[in-house]
Write a protein that binds this DNA or RNA. Structure first.
Lengths: 226, 226
DNA sequence: CCCATATATGGACGTACATTCATTTTATGA
DNA sequence: TCATAAAATGAATGTACGTCCATATATGGG
């Protein structure tokens, strides 16, 4: 039972990386298993045994592809953050270019099923709970990174100028901060009361607040686009 | 070295509770040490050894006063929640009775140093991170309980009626939900960026949103009281 | 003054943990 | 076809964990 199949297909197509089974695949399996474990049994019950069992791999794999358990946890946090931002970016690609449409897209994406779901929420809050004890995780536990923040801020500056605010930058800074805080609060709400949570209500509430400060640009249904 | 001192002072003053050293005191020490450990080394590094060392007590104490480690953790979560609500209640006692003053007090108290500080934030988020894996902790991980929510809602209904909203209850429900979400978001902000966090900004942002929806009752400094 | 009892101690126990590493399995270039 | 190195395995190791419990100490009532 030495060589079952030679599998000599693709003789010159992917010969560049001489990987036997697939180290990348194993890495990915371990990261996914780690996130699954955090979702199912929690951060503090997520052991190496738990992870390798879920990944259907042997114990040694963790230390073959990651220095140690901690490195794997950080890689899992990084992966979760990448999934979040990639999805948000994708949804912004296909959005309108007017500032109030950009803001609307961020809000509705952040509250959409693809990003705001039980798995994601449990993962984010698990990492946040451990963030202050593990500095490497801290950098990946903030959903609102500088790039995103900057984009929303720029959009708010535009609408603040349009409606003739005396201090548009200051006004936009506050509404950016407030909008992101509202979204964070909605995520917390989903974590603690996922059964009674309503995406529609959450969006309406945020737009209600925005229509209060930008009455010409937002109403209860989102961006006003003429 | 049998009896070093009889310490027969206070012969009839505190004789009511026949406690030798003080079981309540030891319970309290263990709970405080648990919270200290969570703050300093994180939830997953909080072991029984870590706790008893911090409390200057022996290993056996945990199982003398609590069934097991888990019971102690739940007691610590309960204690943290009680401290939060007691403090908030106290501050509400000495507040004005007009609805916009009640709302202002809740917001400023929730953002004040007594409630929103590094210790509190780390404790809350640590418990929240474990909440879904430990159902007993879940009930103590929500800062916004029904009683508080109801009080804020009632206050918002009053001001919604005063300004002639067509659907005051619906309007108040949304603004209650939104205000609590904003506060949750500010706590998250404090957790992730405690160095750059400003209580003044946080309050101004919330009042800016409230002045948008209740222009006759709030401005950037809080409640408008004539 | 002594004894019953509450309070406290810390060594011992079995388990589960993260990590190591000698060995085996597999894939592919030569 | 075979040699080689990458990929994968899982038994072994030592440590730290939660819990138990036999023992010690302090206290106040009788």
């Amino acid at each position: 039972m030495k060589k079952k199949l030679s599998t000599k297909e693709n003789p010159k197509q992917e010969e560049r990386q001489p990987r036997r089974y697939s180290s990348e695949e194993s890495r990915r399996l371990l990261i996914e298993a780690t996130l699954d474990s955090i979702v199912d049994v929690g951060f503090s019950s997520t052991s190496v045994s738990e992870i390798v069992t879920r990944a259907n791999l042997s114990r040694g794999m963790v230390h073959l592809y990651f220095d140690n358990k901690d490195t794997l946890l950080v890689a899992a946090a990084k992966h979760a953050a990448e999934v979040y931002f990639r999805n948000l970016s994708d949804q912004l690609e296909s959005a309108g270019s007017r500032p109030q449409e950009i803001i609307e897209t961020v809000i509705l994406s952040d509250l959409g099923e693809a990003l705001l779901n039980e798995r994601m929420v449990k993962i984010w809050f698990a990492f946040r709970g451990e963030a202050h004890a593990n500095k490497a995780i801290t950098q990946f536990s903030d959903t609102r990174d500088e790039q995103l923040r900057g984009m929303i801020f720029d959009a708010f500056v535009e609408v603040a100028i349009e409606q003739g605010e005396p201090e548009p930058a200051k006004f936009a800074r506050d509404t950016t901060h407030g909008t992101l805080a509202l979204l964070e609060g909605m995520w917390t709400d989903f974590l603690l009361h996922s059964d009674s949570f309503s995406r529609k209500s959450a969006a309406r509430i945020i737009f209600r607040f925005l229509s209060g400060v930008y009455p010409q640009h937002f109403d209860l249904d989102g961006a006003i686009v003429k």
